[in-house]
Amino acid sequence: MSVESWGEEPEGIRLQKVMAAAGVASRRVSEQLIAEGRVTVNGELVTEPGRRIDPETDLVAVNGQAVQLDTSKRYIMLNKPRGIVSSLKDENGRPDLRQFTDDFEERLFNVGRLDAETSGLLVLTNDGDLAHVLAHPSFGVSKTYVAKVDGAVSAQTVQKLKTGIELDDGVIKADAVRILAAGSGKAEGTSLVELTLHSGKNRIVRRMLSAVGHPVIDLVRRQFGPLHLGTLRSGAYRDLTKVELGELLTISRDAASSQAASAQTASAQENE
């Protein structure tokens, strides 16, 4: 006789109920997703809606995209204006991120930094695990910037940026570079360049462009990992969509799994 037939509460919560609470879909649609083989728990395919899980420890994915089961977590995309310091309390009294984070009940913090004169995409969250993966350069999350620079950037300069530039703190190279506009018309004497890189070094884009003779006039971060700034106006913010959040969580979980596997391999080699 089953535990439930004795009137005792079995451990865990039904998967479809957890999915519905997380905003994936209604219970009925969630049951359908499970039956169609589109849901995994801890990497294992689940096809029975009756499966019970622990939302605090089990990892759920739908169509290969991670799902956040903890509804207390908040994820915000901000288009940070120029002149705002990427800090929740600036020691010098400059305008900081509190003018945005104070709007939320949750205690949010910024993922990584943008210098005061750089505008663009900044993520605010209370998810420390996700923030660690997104901000740490070892996990290779890319960022894309659009820079207005002094002078006409040549194809040779683009190649230099991709090959590697020697800076005071070592050699750094961009993952991708393209010229969007090269000193013509009203913009004569300036160029618009798009750079993608995963380095988290301080003021790295400005330093790279200055090193090749094209000081930055204006700099905007347009993309952070799978997130795109789109038409979000300066000073505005919004919650991440379910799709955006799923993509970020998938990156975070893949990184954690890879890190755990590497640690396990290293441990096994030490014990040989």
Rank of each mutant, 00 (worst) to 15 (best):
G7C: 02
E8I: 00
E9D: 07
L15H: 04
L15W: 08
Q16G: 02
V18S: 00
A22R: 02
A22C: 09
G23E: 03
S30G: 12
E31M: 02
Q32R: 15
L33V: 09
I34Q: 08
G37K: 13
G37D: 09
V39M: 04
V41H: 04
N42Q: 03
E44G: 03
E44K: 15
T47R: 15
R51S: 01
L59Y: 02
L59W: 07
V60I: 13
V60C: 06
V60G: 00
A61Y: 02
N63I: 06
G64C: 12
Q65T: 00
D70P: 05
S72P: 01
K73S: 12
S86V: 04
S86A: 07
S87V: 08
K89N: 14
R94L: 07
R94C: 03
P95W: 06
D96N: 12
R98K: 14
R98S: 08
D103W: 05
F104Q: 06
A116L: 09
E117R: 11
E117Q: 13
L121I: 10
D127W: 08
D127P: 02
D127N: 11
L130W: 10
A131M: 10
A131K: 10
H132D: 13
P137G: 10
F139W: 12
V141E: 04
V141F: 03
S142R: 11
Y145P: 06
K148L: 15
V149E: 03
D150V: 15
A152T: 01
K160A: 11
L161F: 09
I165A: 02
E166I: 10
D169W: 13
I172F: 13
K173E: 03
A176K: 14
A176H: 12
R178V: 00
A181E: 15
A182E: 09
A187T: 10
E188K: 15
E194G: 02
L195D: 12
L195S: 08
R207H: 10
L209A: 05
L209R: 04
V212L: 10
V216T: 12
I217H: 00
L219W: 00
F224D: 04
L227W: 11
R233T: 10
S234A: 12
G235A: 01
Y237F: 14
D239R: 06
L249V: 09
I251G: 02
S252Y: 07
S252Q: 13
A255K: 12
S257Q: 15
S257N: 13
S258C: 01
Q264R: 14
Q264H: 05
T265D: 11
S267C: 02
E272F: 14
